[in-house]
């Protein structure tokens, strides 16, 4: 799995020969990371928990606040949405190339 910061590239972009997933950050996650989007490339099917581990490697500031300390899931403050369509809590779900993984506050409304 390779990683590359990709703030300016379109969400569904493939990078070279690798499959890629774009993580979109909102709210506190965005402020901590200092960027809106992070593209993660890989050459094998990837579970969400693997993706979060990789994200934790890239943005260690997210651990403890956005990503749980075991780095396998999100803290209760945050939720995950796939492609703007579907909310997902099962971190064993596999993402596919071109997926956009949105991470934002679990406190909806206001």
């Amino acid at each position: 799995m390779n990683t590359q910061s990709n703030e300016s590239k379109p969400a569904n972009n493939r990078l070279d020969n690798y499959d890629s997933v774009t993580i979109e950050l909102f709210g506190t996650a965005r402020l901590l990371a200092g960027k809106n989007k992070i593209s993660i490339t890989y050459d094998n099917p990837t579970h969400l928990w693997e993706l979060l581990r990789k994200l934790a490697d890239i943005e260690p500031k997210l651990v403890g606040i956005v990503i749980s300390n075991d780095r396998n899931s999100l803290t209760k403050s945050f939720i995950l949405n796939l492609n703007g369509d579907r909310f997902v809590t099962d971190m064993n779900e596999v993402v596919v190339s071109g997926d956009n993984v949105l991470i934002f506050s679990s406190q909806s409304g206001g």
Partner: peptide, 24 residues
């Protein structure tokens, strides 16, 4: 001051704007 109120403490309700925009 735990995980259940993070949004309200750090950015407030206005943090819905970017999320709602993305979710259309």
């Amino acid at each position: 001051v735990g995980t259940g109120t993070e949004k309200y403490r750090t950015l407030g309700t206005i943090s819905n704007v970017s999320v709602f925009n993305r979710l259309e």
